[in-house]
């Protein structure tokens, strides 16, 4: 089998984050929370966000969920990249990530860890796995207040 392509997709960082995520859990306190799911495969994710006092900066992001290596690694890398970011900057990162999945551009050097997800763009059916966490984050940030726990976004 052609493992070469697979090494592009399953880069070491992705496999490591899948095995040992660094940002799994729930933030304290929870200022925003959002559930997301991928109805076609059953993957689920729950994002919690701790905001700064002014509400315009992300102090911490954590995730819980069940999913494939791509979905879980993407969530873990996203959580790390968002710490300390202004909320509007975070929203522009959502767009940048989606563009990268379409094969357009990547992240600048200070956020280059996210570029390990670039290989996913070569596997169109797996893009949904990588973007689930970002869709969920976007919904969480755009909610004016703490969302009801039963509400969820779908990436379909």
């Amino acid at each position: 089998m052609t493992l070469g392509n697979l090494r592009d997709l399953y880069q070491q960082v992705i496999l490591e984050r899948y095995k040992k995520p660094k940002h799994k859990g729930v933030t304290h306190p929870v200022h925003r929370q959002q559930r997301g799911h991928n109805p076609s495969c059953g993957d689920t994710i729950e994002i919690t966000i701790q905001l700064s006092e002014s509400g315009d900066r992300i102090e911490d992001v954590k995730f819980e969920g069940e999913g494939c290596a791509i979905a879980m690694a993407s969530a873990d890398l996203m959580a790390e990249a968002l710490r300390g970011k202004a909320t509007d900057e975070a929203l522009s990162m959502v767009q940048r990530f989606q563009n990268m999945m379409q094969g357009n551009g990547d992240f600048p050097i200070e956020q280059r860890k996210l570029n390990v997800m670039q290989g996913v763009s070569q596997f169109p059916v797996r893009i949904k796995c990588a973007t689930l966490t970002w869709h969920t984050l976007k919904a969480a940030l755009e909610a004016p207040t703490l969302a009801k726990p039963e509400a969820f976004v779908s990436n379909e």
């Binding site: 089998m1 697979l6 495969c41 999913g67 494939c68 290596a69 791509i70 797996r126 796995c129």
Partner: peptide, 12 residues
């Protein structure tokens, strides 16, 4: 995960 498995098998 079954999704990862399916992608790997598809390559074969």
């Amino acid at each position: 995960h079954p999704h990862d498995l399916s992608t790997i098998l598809d390559q074969a």
